[in-house]
């Protein structure tokens, strides 16, 4: 529990709205690349959200999850991109 707790939570709830928008794009997206864009955005926002959660709880160690996500979401994006551009694996 830190002094910026409430501020960070407000930020977090706003980020949830961003997540909602990204999800809407994933759902609506007329083409597959649109969905991937939504996923990519979602990834970034979730990473930021995780960082903020870690700070808000004042739990240092759990920020590691954010790093993992930042690094790995990239890989899944690349996989989908590779499929879309028609490359062989």
């Amino acid at each position: 529990m830190i002094e910026f707790y409430n501020t960070l939570l407000v930020v977090l709830s706003l980020l949830l709205i961003c997540i909602l928008m990204a999800i809407i794009r994933i759902i609506l997206g007329p083409t597959a690349p649109d969905r991937v864009v939504g996923l990519d955005t979602l990834n970034t926002i979730v990473v930021v959200g995780m960082v903020i959660f870690g700070a808000a709880y004042n739990l240092v160690i759990i920020v590691d999850v954010a790093i993992v996500y930042a690094l790995l979401s990239f890989v899944s994006t690349l996989f989908i991109a590779k499929y879309l551009e028609g490359g062989r694996f």
Partner: peptide, 23 residues
């Protein structure tokens, strides 16, 4: 947080990154 399985999954993903980039 983490451990053998989580770290292993991360390293495997790193290898998967190479796989997807280079075929």
């Amino acid at each position: 947080p983490g451990g053998g399985f989580q770290g292993g999954a991360i390293v495997a993903s790193a290898c998967a990154l190479l796989l997807v980039a280079y075929g």
